[in-house]
Design a protein around this nucleic acid. Structure first.
Lengths: 376, 376
DNA sequence: CTGAAAGCGCTTACAG
DNA sequence: CTGAAAGCGCTTACAG
């Protein structure tokens, strides 16, 4: 009672404060329209410290020794003038941009925010800014080759972390040939002869789907369905191979009627999943091999009122920690680690140290027995 | 049958292609370790075209007329040399960075990818790169004042789109005083005397929650619960005000026992929602005022086996199009529009044209009767 | 340890 | 319409 009354009061007082400020604000002048203050330069600091720009630069970069007496005067001048170096000027001089691109298929697909989180943290620590850009438009998913290169071509960034598509291979090679180091994320396209490998951090989707399928086989299932990405998709192939190999290892013949492939959307996943259930000889277990398809599949499960795992065993795929209903086991995609490790790999390349031939790392997916969220 | 057989073959052939290339790749040399080719400069183009750098610059920027004869020679030289201007040099000369910051609370919260999508599209079209950064760390949600300013302070970017927190007001004013134009997104903090208003694009949460509550009242409910953000939260206040006003307008007394406020997480939302159901005099309808809390609330609904709206009417809140189960009506947050409109507003400021006093716009939330996803 | 000078690659008055 | 020159703000050999 008291609690909410206080809240009520607060709501009133704060919102009246807002309106009051709004009113006075609109007549109080507009600070950010006044000419932006000229920022101090390194020459200003040198003058104030009674020394040369060169010495100030040496002090600031820490590249060379500076006497303690000079250092003290420079430090004082920097503080007094509120000096901050011009990153642009430094970049021009050092012939770099300080920018790293993170190239994802879709900006508006929340799945990629994990990679951004992991990458951004590492890159920021090394003094780089992360620029996220996308190669696809949402409506038709067509390749934005041009706009992709308008953004990244020819030294626009110092390096790039890229989710590749098969059709982009040539453009990636071109970008690299122009001097932009690249680390591929998530998957690796097939490389035509003459194109050397790229550094990469990939995810063991083949292993995850192999394990998921094997798990269901061990649980006694024989008719195991697969909902996954359509053929020809770079991410679809290893998933299908994992499924196929698990069946083969168990001596189970692959039944094409139990394989439903399509795009990676939740709506599509729901259709594919529902389609499997309408087959003549219905599967008694299904592996769903992507995050959104898993969401869609669960929607189909709910609409039909199926009990899992009693009526049907399902193992899904997930990127994040969000609640699944009904709860099912999943393999969890290590998005944040992917971003982080790819970033570190790129930083090694940029360091200029010889880091050897080709760097590559493959991350496993973690098995999550069921939804991790507890409500009580 | 044929379909999957083909797929199977393809999987084999492609994966053998990959391994083959891998092997040859590792001995075939490493193109991106060879010294990056020196990029052509404007001087190179001028020489090749038999003219001066100044004229090339005029042609490229389009700022001044160039004779058709010169234009043709320059065009040819640009193509032949594969010339691309150095953005860094141009930026230094023009005293800008070409960068706009999008500052969100958490990088790893997918809710913000919508804003990024909308903003990035607009800013890219105007030649700016969008840099996403966050002010909070996930673990404890504390304010990263320092790192925030390390990234954005003093001319690091040409402008910023910022999700503000109340405690950041002083820092925002400082940033603006240093000459960085700012547009606030989503909400506006209370401004102490002496701090002028900021441009802003906000969302009418008060209106949405008012409408949601009124809708339930019109449907005949009297005991209406609220699950929302805790007091003191910038986004929590308008929501609470909307709820309160709807009750007041209907002549219903606010019962503090029906108000459950907490953080915005799904787990928290589930607890708050479940808590409401355990009150002595249980609500017969509940408004859930944030996206993640809505997800959590639905989890609680499912675990208790409640039928909505028969056992309990619920109106929720959502950012995206993902499937909700059970399906409930929601108010949809216009994230992409927010990013888009805020970006355009900032671009107007940057254009240097006098755009008047303070710009502000408030977007309504759209009522979505139930989950938009269809499985068939 | 320190300073004068050159130069990173552009753009834009200034002068023709 | 065109060119020579200065300058954006740094860093770094070069010389002391």
């Amino acid at each position: 009672m008291t609690n909410v009354n206080r809240l009520w009061d607060e709501a009133y007082s704060v919102s009246s404060l807002v309106s009051r400020t709004v009113r006075s604000g609109s007549t109080a002048g507009v600070p950010h329209l006044s000419p932006p203050p000229r920022r101090a330069t390194i020459a200003d600091v040198a003058r104030a410290a009674g020394t040369s720009p060169a010495l100030v630069s040496r002090f600031l970069t820490g590249n060379q020794r500076v006497s303690e007496a000079s250092a003290a005067r420079i430090r004082e001048a920097v503080d007094r003038l509120g000096y901050a170096p011009s990153v642009t000027a430094r970049n021009l001089r050092l012939r770099r941009t300080g920018l790293i691109a993170l190239v994802v298929p879709y900006l508006d697909n929340p799945l990629y925010s994990l990679h951004a989180t992991g990458a951004e943290r590492e890159l920021a620590a090394a003094g780089f800014l992360t620029v996220v850009c996308s190669t696809r438009t949402k409506p038709d998913g067509s390749y934005l080759g041009r706009s992709f290169f308008d953004t990244l071509g020819a030294g626009r960034v110092d390096g790039a972390l890229i989710f590749p598509y098969q059709e982009e291979v040539g453009d990636l090679a071109t970008l690299r040939a122009q001097g932009t180091p690249i680390v591929l994320i998530d998957r690796v396209p097939a490389l035509p002869d003459g194109i050397a490998r790229f550094d990469s951090v990939t995810v063991d989707n083949e292993g995850a789907i192999f394990n998921a399928t094997s798990r269901l086989i061990e649980a006694g299932h024989r008719r195991i369905g697969l909902v996954s990405l359509r053929e020809g998709s770079l991410s679809g192939i290893p998933r299908f191979v994992g499924y196929k190999n698990a069946l083969r290892d168990a001596g189970i013949e692959l039944d094409p009627d139990l394989v439903a492939l399509g795009d990676g959307s939740d709506v599509g996943g729901a259709s594919l999943f529902a389609g499997l259930l309408e087959r003549e000889c219905r599967p008694d277990a299904i592996v769903v091999a992507t995050t959104l398809q898993t969401r869609g599949a669960l929607d189909a499960v709910r609409r039909r009122g199926l009990q899992v795992p009693q009526d049907l065993a399902v193992i899904g795929y997930r990127h994040d920690q969000s609640v699944l209903w009904p709860e099912i086991p999943t393999y969890r995609y290590p998005g944040e680690s992917l971003g982080e490790i790819a970033a570190r790999m790129l930083l090694r390349r940029l360091s200029g140290n010889e880091v050897g031939d080709i760097l590559s790392e493959t991350l496993a997916l973690e098995f999550v027995p069921s939804s991790p969220v507890q409500t009580h």
